[in-house]
Amino acid sequence: MTDLRVEGLQVAYETRPGERLVACQDISLTVASGEFVTIIGPSGCGKSTVLHCMGGLLPPTQGRVLFGGDEVVQPNPHNAAFVFQDYSLFPWKNILENVGMGLTFAGAGKTEIAGKAAEKLDFVGLGEFAHALPRELSGGMQQRVAVARALAMEPRVLLMDEPFGALDEQSRRTLGSDMARILEQTQRSVVLITHSLDEAIFWADRIIVMSARPGTIIEEIEVKAPRPRDLSMMTEPEFQAIRVRLFDLIQLQQAKKAPQPLAGGR
């Protein structure tokens, strides 16, 4: 039983003494073992905040997070490993060392680190950059390194915050479908935040759509297409129907965020 549950989550940041900003509220969701969940919503609606809570990085203001029935109070990278939105590589370590850093922090042995780091780096297609420094890599390549760092933990859940945001559409699709296939085989759960409608649908067993801040869940959409999925899935009517639905939902939220026209009554 490795499902991840979020119950009645609310997070408020204290921006200034006495001033609270509610980032998200009433978030309840379950990620079943082996399930792929994608989260989509307007910028600043609290997606990263929810993800950080799911991995125990951020204590909820209200509600709780359970992993396999136990309350999550601190990060455990073997259960849930992060890929951060800003990739956060260590500029003073080479690429191979960076991939192994998660394992190093978590206290793995040297040979295990070396083996797994090299393997995952190859998997994201950057084997030849093992000894380069992060500053020699493009943004998209750095994101792939961050993904490899999380994969090297072989965690039960991967928490990915726009892991392919800096990639072009083409590489995003190929890397995405490769990764989805690998993760499928290993029965690993994935929570993926994205701004790309295609990505949200292609990966997902379930899409969670969030409202503008304070973020709440406004809709959950199941994607029933069989796995393993193929990029040709994107041309099918079901895919297109969901895409239109998502587009409308997001449009509506964006409109709410924008300033109201003067005459517009509420």
């Binding site: 455990n76 990278p77 951060f84 800003d86 850093m101 998660g102």
Partner: peptide, 10 residues
């Protein structure tokens, strides 16, 4: 952000 990675990987 680097401290956050250290924390996330315990």
């Amino acid at each position: 952000k680097h401290l956050m990675v250290a924390k996330a990987y315990r």
